[in-house]
Design a binder for these strands. Structure first.
Lengths: 362, 362
DNA sequence: CGTGCACTTGACTACGTATGCACGCTCCGT
DNA sequence: ACGGAGCGTGCATACGTAGTCAAGTGCACG
């Protein structure tokens, strides 16, 4: 069956034999141990080079009990949001001489049997999913979580098994872990305040999932700013949905069917806003002529000329770097306290075409 | 320094002790070896569960000489193209019980010393870059290459070290390796033919890098169709660039400055086309009123209402699945021949708003 | 009642690398 | 000339798992 007969690879023993030294010496040379004679080092290096020797990471990991690899957990790779997070994570990890593994958390549909006892729920949480296995089987030194829902069990399990991890973008309350997030509530307030300042009164919103910190905090910020302005946010012009193009598209179609129509729609993020933008195109409406739109995140896409999307910038690169640093400090035990270190970044409003004063006399 | 004192994890020996059996038996139970008594199995499983035992992938890999992990090599994670490739790759690998690692190939700028001797070039090729190290250090069983340029040394090095790999989307001539690609030349011909059929005569093009099979083959297809129609493709309305938004944007600005302007511009892929689309918006031109646009790939984005991009569909999911299957067959030695197996998929023209007949009397 | 087979289990070793320990050698000081 | 320090190197072992070999038990059959 497995007729592979993989060509057995060259090991440090082979190099040792070729150089006429012991395997220990080979290891020392390659680990840059300075207690080895220059002439020996030379011989070993040329033997290694001649044999095309590449040290086995597996053998090394087994004895060092470290893989210098961190896992990044995301939900949906198809979502345009993640690449912008993944790239800086990857880069910063590289700088710190860590490798990166990308893992997807398949969100299981909440089945019909909603009321299983807490004992049962606990048991299910401990059940080893493929993802959890991957995180706990020591092929990874730490984890960056970007997708956690507030009720997620994953962070709790990781904490219990004392696997180092850090929250990025979102976090889960009641779990003591480092995190790097933007001040979502403030950002949403800024955007809402600007809409109010421009004279918008009939404000609509497409919020994110209430069981994510991001969705909830941005909603809080919008509602606070609306209330502070003495305005209201009627349920008829509010929708909740996932952070996806499709969710934004569909919600926007519904909102545009309301009478009176909102003159501005605040969206939970840029992807949703772009879904909404396309919905207006499908409906023959114009932005900002018929309705203004505001996003959140400031993805490169928001700046595209066809959108000109007003949005709230969050420093994703800085956040990703911070997350990696926090994590690696934990991994290498360089941090004294067990307390969670929460880094909160400043949002910044980026004004573009998609937000304008409401049409007069509409 | 490293005061981590990582809590030493539970091993199969711990489980063995708890269950009152030998480590071998624990291993057998977990490997589902049926030569173990039901009662023993029961005891071992409950001990393992009580101790929250998770087998060490590192230990396992060392002895099995296999990691069940395949690497995906891409250039630019920020490019919207890759997620659509990565997701199905990841999924198919999961189905086959393989894990996936995402690696980026940093394309080194071609320095000024262009003419180093072939011996020198060879030496540099053998130099172990971080990426190459990662691919050869046996932390990975095989590689999916999506980014190779025609002169790339990576595939050749992999072949020489007999590391299984497969080309996806692009390929490199002269390297005998399995590949899964669309018929790029045919696809480009289809799109060009349609433009001609609609009456376009002044055709412009933004081609991809000539040192990629994708860029070159799509260019070939366009040129063949133009010639077959008895038309010409003047250099003034042809640009070459990378497969990026920015390249498409800039090239389009240049093409639109030509007189007479082309009435249609064929783009090397959808990202480039969308860059071009945005350039027209910046210039105050309309698509397809002032100029028609055609892409390639049929990313979900092409179907967005604001674009309505006519493009050539390639079955990326099927291609990704095929690539994974080809690769795993190689890894597991299930394929007799050494000959390259090339799977060529059918392109399909998807007509949307962005391609229309040229304005009359323009 | 003896032989042999089926079934179950444990002792042991290999995988490739890193490293503690000990040994031998050189060189210097007295 | 002798002792000790210090350097360079090899031996042996550990890491956690899989699998080989052999041994033990019990049962059926002759």
């Amino acid at each position: 069956m497995d007729g592979a007969s993989r060509p057995e690879s060259v090991t440090s023993h082979d190099v040792a034999r070729a150089a006429g030294v012991s395997q220990s010496t080979v290891s020392r040379v390659l680990r840059n141990d300075r207690r080895v004679a220059a002439s020996t080092r030379e011989r070993v290096l040329s033997a290694a080079s001649a044999l095309h020797y590449v040290p086995s990471e597996v053998g090394r990991s087994l004895v060092t009990r470290s893989t210098r690899t961190i896992a990044i957990v995301v939900t949906d790779l198809g979502n345009a949001f993640y690449p912008h997070l993944i790239a800086p994570l990857h880069d910063e990890a590289s700088v710190q001489n860590y490798r990166t593994v990308l893992l997807t958390e398949t969100v299981e549909p909440l089945g019909g049997d909603g009321d299983l006892g807490s004992a049962e729920a606990e048991a299910r949480a401990e059940e080893i999913s493929p993802l959890l296995d991957r995180l706990l089987n020591r092929s990874t030194d730490g984890v960056v979580l970007t997708t956690s829902r507030l009720d997620g069990t994953l962070p709790r399990v990781l904490a219990r098994r004392s696997m180092p991890f850090v929250f990025l973008t979102r976090f889960v309350e009641g779990v003591a872990a480092d995190s790097a997030v933007v001040d979502n509530s403030l950002g949403a307030s800024l955007a809402t305040g600007e809409a109010v300042r421009l004279g918008h009164v009939r404000i609509g919103a497409i919020f994110g999932p209430p069981d994510t910190s991001t969705g909830r905090d941005r909603e809080r910020g919008v509602r606070a700013a609306v209330t502070a302005a003495g305005l209201e946010l009627p349920d008829a012009v509010v929708r909740h949905g996932n952070f996806t193009f499709e969710a934004g598209h569909q919600a926007m179609v519904e909102l545009m069917a309301q009478r009176p129509r909102p003159t501005v729609v605040l969206c939970s993020n840029d992807i949703v806003a772009i879904g909404a933008f396309n919905a207006t195109a499908a409906l023959g409406l114009s932005v900002p002529g018929d309705v203004s739109l505001v996003g959140f995140d400031d993805l490169p896409m928001a700046a595209w000329e066809v959108f000109g999307l007003t949005t709230v910038h969050q420093p994703m690169e800085a956040m990703a770097r911070a997350a990696v640093e926090l994590l690696i400090e934990r991994i290498e035990g360089r941090v004294d306290s067990d307390a969670a270190r929460q880094m909160v970044f400043e949002p910044r409003l980026v004004v573009r075409r998609s937000l304008a004063p409401p049409a007069t006399g509409a």
